[in-house]
């Protein structure tokens, strides 16, 4: 069994345990009541979306530094999983905002910068399809991922720097004791799943890049056109 399949299975176990704990055994939040249970799904997704983007940033630096397809494939894996978590995060946040704020969405600094983050990293994936020359595609993917990552600390500190409707930074230090463990277990569940998904996606991308390197997939004339365009 490949290591990331085992990690994925562990992620399912942790996420299932954390979610069941948060839904059925953790106490209702003292002001929000049962709506507060969204905490155990939303906050782990948010933490891990930012963490996966950090991994993508490291992979982008590695890609630009080494020009190796292994770094590039990890970069693609992390960016894609980051975007999935980011979209999920916004949905969860909207479902929490409606009963607490009265609206699904507000153009508040945290929410706006998070939405921009989706656009930036989705752009990294989209632009990969615009370039067929491997070297050019690798460099542009790395550079755009680094540029997109600049928004991650802005998202993180948005509630500190600006007057935000969204609550401040969340951590175990700001959460009551009975809520710690379901939150932590859920967070590790999402982390394990995110890394497992990224590893699988990276494996697929690596195989694709290797095929592209070794097989003459493009007709000679098209290759010459691309080389000429550079």
């Amino acid at each position: 069994m490949k290591w990331h399949y085992a990690l994925g299975a562990l992620g399912v176990l942790f996420l299932g345990t954390g979610h069941a704990w948060g839904l059925f055994f953790a106490p209702p939040e003292f002001m929000m009541g049962d709506v507060g249970r969204i905490l155990y799904a939303h906050v782990p997704t948010a933490w891990n979306a930012m963490l996966v983007y950090l991994f993508a940033f490291v992979a982008a630096i590695g890609t630009l530094w080494t020009s190796k397809s292994s770094w590039e494939s990890w970069l693609v894996g992390f960016v894609e999983v980051g975007v999935v978590l980011n979209i999920l995060l916004c949905f969860q946040g909207a479902m929490w905002a409606k009963p607490t704020w009265g609206v699904y969405w507000d153009w508040d600094p945290r929410l706006t910068t998070t939405a921009i983050l989706i656009a930036l990293f989705a752009g990294v994936l989209i632009q990969r399809n615009l370039f067929h020359a491997p070297d050019k595609r690798r460099i542009i993917t790395g550079v755009t991922a680094v540029i997109a990552f600049v928004n991650v600390p802005i998202v993180y500190f948005a509630t500190t720097w600006w007057n935000s409707l969204h609550q401040g930074l969340s951590s175990p230090d700001t959460v009551s004791n009975p809520m710690h463990w379901p939150l932590r277990v859920s967070a590790f569940g999402v982390l394990f799943l995110a890394v497992a998904f990224s590893a699988e996606r990276a494996k697929q991308e690596r195989a694709r890049l290797e095929r592209e390197d070794t097989a003459p997939t493009l007709p000679l004339a098209q290759k010459q056109l691309e080389l000429g365009a550079e």
């Binding site: 209702p28 002001m31 009963p99 704020w101 009975p178």
Partner: peptide
């Protein structure tokens, strides 16, 4: 106790709802 800092519901949501 039983909550978290930054709670923004203003204590408005009745228990059992949502």
């Amino acid at each position: 106790e039983g909550g978290f800092i930054g709670n923004d519901s203003y204590g408005a949501i009745p228990l059992g709802s949502g």
